[in-house]
Amino acid sequence: MAKAGEKSGGATSLENELSCPVCLCLYKDPVMLSCGHNFCKQCIRKVLDSQQRSPASCPMCKMQLGPNVEVQNNFQLRSIVETFLAANSKGQQEDGSEERKKAMVLCDFCLDKSEPAVKTCLMCDASLCQAHLSKHNATASQQDHVLVEVGTGGVAERRCQEHGKLLECYCRNERLYICLLCCIVGQHKGHDIITLKEAHEEQLAELSNIATWLQERENALAAALEGLLKNERQLKTNIKTVISQTESLFEQLKTDIIKEKTRILQDIESIERKNLTGIPEMKGEIQKLRGEAVELLQSLQKMKEQPDVFRFFKEFKLIKDRIYSQDFSVNMVGMEVLEMDQAWIGSYKRLAQDFISNMKALLREVQCES
């Protein structure tokens, strides 16, 4: 069973969810940006103020917030944080006094009643209450002493392992913190030595340079990302336009082809009607003449069997008069011969193939450029 002072996994997870991503503490006056991310009001103001030279953006998702950044108070999130704090304060109060007693560090200079220490002097190797700290700082020789928070720990690492002295110097050659004896009689004798304060100033300058360089890189990446998003939007817009144009082109071609097909079929039907107009009448005349020719042929065949010469001559003369009185010539009606030119059909197919090939070549050219 977990102790009252310890946080369960669920409480820790909830506390992480209710913590500002900038200061990593529970939200104080939480506000929400237009992208949906939440921050402490004071934290996001500091972040936005530091972005004056570049377009304001969310420190979480890097979304551009525009020239006029608007933040909204998140009252619901504030209520959740207050409820969480109220639920945890009761358990902390129950064992808080005992924990504080265990964690309390007493002043090393108090004689009668030891007061809680507020600072630890690394030079004096002593913890000081507020009263003795004031006396300590009032002494001119002790004003340069290094003071740290009580219970910070790691005091041993602030002392030289070889001489046991406080690390007050910095060796530029070895890039190490050293004590005074290291640079006087130790292995760092003759090296380029500076004080911790000077080393700290140099490190701050380097930190500032690195931060400036990193900010420039971040700005460049943000600009590159914005350019990429702009190109993505433009590409999508262009693709939609090309698709619309292509669909419109093929629809127009389809409409024109159907229209021309209807007109050409009507012309063909007109030619058919023109050529078939006189055929029924002529067919009747030809059938009539053919029937008469068949009848006369049959009469001639019978005459071959006529034994009476006198009757033969008489009947043969009558049949010949009938034959010569008729006009058995055939006058064909002139008709237009309509047929498709195979060369013309091949030319049309090549034109259609060239059109499709040009469309494909255009698409390949765009793909190669991208």
Rank of each mutant, 00 (worst) to 15 (best):
Q130E: 13
Q72C: 09
Q203N: 09
I319L: 15
G334R: 05
K62T: 12
N38P: 01
L228M: 10
A211M: 10
D308R: 06
A126W: 02
N88G: 03
A131Y: 05
Q203A: 15
N238W: 10
T255E: 11
C20S: 02
L204A: 15
I268R: 02
R158A: 12
Q92S: 07
L300Y: 13
Q76L: 13
K165H: 15
K360Q: 11
Q287E: 14
G278A: 09
E99P: 00
E70T: 14
F84G: 00
G153R: 03
Q306A: 04
I279Y: 01
N73D: 11
K259T: 14
Q287I: 10
V185W: 02
Q142K: 11
A352P: 00
A211G: 00
I239T: 08
E149H: 02
V81C: 12
Q203D: 09
Q42L: 11
K274R: 06
K349F: 12
D112R: 03
L297H: 10
C179D: 07
G96F: 06
R217P: 00
Q161R: 06
S114T: 08
I323G: 01
E232Y: 03
N209M: 14
L166W: 02
Q298G: 08
L289F: 07
T262C: 06
A126M: 13
Q266N: 14
C171P: 00
V105E: 05
M32F: 02
L166C: 03
V366C: 03
N331G: 01
A220N: 10
M340N: 01
R172Q: 10
L14V: 10
Q42C: 07
N73M: 08
G36S: 05
Q93N: 11
C179F: 08
V337C: 02
H163R: 06
K90T: 14
D354R: 01
M340R: 03
K283G: 10
A293I: 12
L235G: 01
Q301T: 11
L77W: 03
K274F: 08
S19T: 04
E15W: 04
G346F: 01
I268L: 15
N68L: 15
S13W: 05
I323E: 04
I319T: 07
G291A: 15
S329P: 00
Q215E: 11
E272G: 03
D321M: 09
K302E: 13
K62G: 04
V337G: 00
A131M: 06
E305D: 15
E115M: 11
E168C: 06
L204D: 14
E149T: 06
Y348W: 03
S34G: 06
E295K: 06
K236S: 08
I264R: 02
I356L: 13
E365C: 04
D354A: 05
L318T: 11
I264S: 05
S89A: 09
Q252S: 09
E202T: 06
G36H: 02
S325M: 07
T12H: 03
N137I: 13
